[in-house]
Nucleic acid binder design. Sequence first.
RNA 1: GGGGGUGUGCCCGAGUGGCUAAAGGGGACGGGCUGUAAACCCGUUGACUACGUCUACGAUGGUUCGAAUCCAUCCGCCCCCA
Length: 401
Amino acid sequence: MTATPEEQLQIIKSGASQVVPEDELFKKLKEGRPLRIKLGVDPTAPDLHLGHAVPLRKLRQFQDLGHTVVLIIGDFTAQIGDPSGRNSTRPPLTAEQVNEHAQTYINQAYRILDPEKTELRHNSEWLSMMNFGDLLKVASQFTVARILERDDFAKRYGEQKPISLHEFLYPMAQAYDSVAIESDVELGGTDQLFNLLAGRELMEKNGMAPQVILTLPLLEGTDGVQKMSKSYGNYIGLTDEPADMFGKIMSIPDELMAKYYRLATALPVSEVDEIEKAIVEGTEHPNQLKRRLGREIVSLYYDNEAAVQAEEAFDLVFKQHKIPDDIAEFDLGLESEVYLPKLMVDSLLAQSAGEGRRLIDGGGVKIDGEALPAKTYNIDASKVIGTVIQVGKRKFAKINS
RNA sequence: GGGGGUGUGCCCGAGUGGCUAAAGGGGACGGGCUGUAAACCCGUUGACUACGUCUACGAUGGUUCGAAUCCAUCCGCCCCCA
């Protein structure tokens, strides 16, 4: 692909939060050589979601423009536990966990990246070779005041929350990665700005051309408030079933649609611009746009057919209020009378019998589509065998004898 | 090393001997409305087949008829001084 530096810059900037400094990036693009684009990832979570996919998509754009991606698995730094964007210390991982996670990460990342154009590195390659003297030498190039400027450190410090010394050193480790691989550009979430800048500074201090920094917005999860994260339970996993994926996308707040289009789909920048315009001007029904968004994303990780089926399944359950085809089944056994709350726990519809009772009393439990009156806890086995118990709008279990 | 604080349910946060499974808020869940969006209204929110029993207020031990509340020791965290 031969795009002009101007065209490249436009694509690269799409969806980016900041490019620091932009003219430097433009200069690098004009050199006409493949740039080295760095992304460092901590293999902490074994399952990737759309939030993780944001920088990966951007990397993919770089690849399509002919640049080289250097993906750094932070196998060494994962054992520090970076607190970025969190208000508490992250538990460090063992070496085995790290390796396991890294492999899963790579497999999933390659669903987005082109492996041919990806240079895969582990930061233990250089970080584990450093001795204490080396460490001090690098550390001497930063000041405490400078590190303390980092937003979350400043916040934690202000709130009298603990900051461990090793966390303090984290930005330095990440910065050193940039020196080691001689990156031209480093990507990261906006919460990474500080660490990315540290890399810039360290490169400069070591007589290298400093990397350009490109930050990407954090993608909020399905709740529309918190950034997407497994621990907040608001994530859309790359390996989620098509129907699930579609359903979760439908549940995001409208305000997030444009952002999702830009950051989570592979649509050309010009098309995203048009969609964004349609959203702002209200020329299309939000529901239609959200459906399309769902289809786009599902077909990205599966295929078109899966996307269409996912949408159909969605309509079946939520528009026509029918019961979906493939639902979990549960074998009742040889009971004659059934204590429903317990059955709900066993079939994973409720977390405790108490919750089951509450759900029944609150009118949230249906058998074959019919809501149960409050206090119906004990019920004849014949009345549930072969039926589908539904809790709320989206939890189902088929009961077999 | 010295001094002073603080630790409550998913989170924040009241509560300083019985009326406390623990106010209030947030979040979450369920119902209504709807486009499984938002906003809004209602309800629920420790476990247990349950007008009762058990577990729970950093940990352990103690005082008391009775403790989240009092005492002792320990642990975590924070601040000030050195």
